[in-house]
Simulated assay, not measured.
Amino acid sequence: MSSSEPRVETRSARPYACIRTRAPLSEWGRVNALVGEVRAWLDERGVAVVGAPQYRYHSVDVAGEIDVEVGWCVAEPVEGDGRVRPGEWPAGEYAVCDHVGSPDRITEAFARLDEWSARTGRPFAKRGETWVGRFETYLTDPAHEPDLDRWRTEVAYLLGTG
């Protein structure tokens, strides 16, 4: 299990469809179930999915609730229905780190990114305590790779300007 050295990537805006929720870590199973719900919603409407499932974190309080969107990037923007809503990755420079191993150890990637930010003086984009662009993309399909130690996850944080 390991996390790569962070790298900077410039990314364009990308549309996605998601469900936003708040939950403590003790209810993370409920959050994870939203991956399938959003995918089924997209499939029912014939919406083309681009890539893997993703989580966008707006605020993280590991002792309390986490404000998160769970969804999928799509080829074209979607109209929401109240439960499923449209979203968009903000365009800009991202600090990106690849994590190989169980999602339960994803904090290794977070620590790498925090260390990188402190070392380089490149802050992450935030408005107060709200992240402007903090994403996890799950690159491994559990149906094809049941071994959690082989899962690949990309963590990407939008960089700030100051």
Rank of each mutant, 00 (worst) to 15 (best):
P77G: 06
G51K: 11
V47L: 04
E44Y: 03
F124V: 14
G82H: 11
P123K: 10
F110C: 05
A48T: 15
V62L: 15
V62E: 13
V84T: 09
D43V: 15
G92V: 08
A75Q: 11
D67Y: 10
P90M: 08
E79V: 13
P123E: 11
R112K: 14
G29Q: 13
D81R: 09
L42N: 08
A111S: 11
E108S: 10
V38C: 06
R45S: 07
A91F: 03
G80Y: 01
E37L: 14
R30N: 13
A111H: 13
G46W: 05
G64K: 10
V35Q: 11
G87H: 04
S117W: 02
V31A: 00
P90K: 05
P90S: 05
R39C: 02
E88S: 15
E88I: 01
T120I: 07
A48S: 12
Y94W: 02
D61S: 14
S117P: 01
E79F: 01
I106V: 15
Y57F: 15
D67Q: 05
I106Y: 09
W116R: 01
D81A: 06
A109D: 03
G92I: 07
I66K: 08
V49C: 03
C73S: 09
G121F: 02
L34E: 10
W72S: 00
V38L: 06
V49D: 04
A52N: 14
S117M: 06
E27K: 14
S59I: 00
E115R: 15
H58D: 12
E37F: 12
D43T: 14
R122H: 12
W72N: 04
H99Y: 07
D104Y: 12
G51C: 09
E88T: 13
R85K: 11
W28C: 02
P90A: 12
A33K: 11
G29H: 12
E27Q: 15
V49T: 06
P77D: 00
T107P: 00
V47T: 14
R30T: 12
R45G: 08
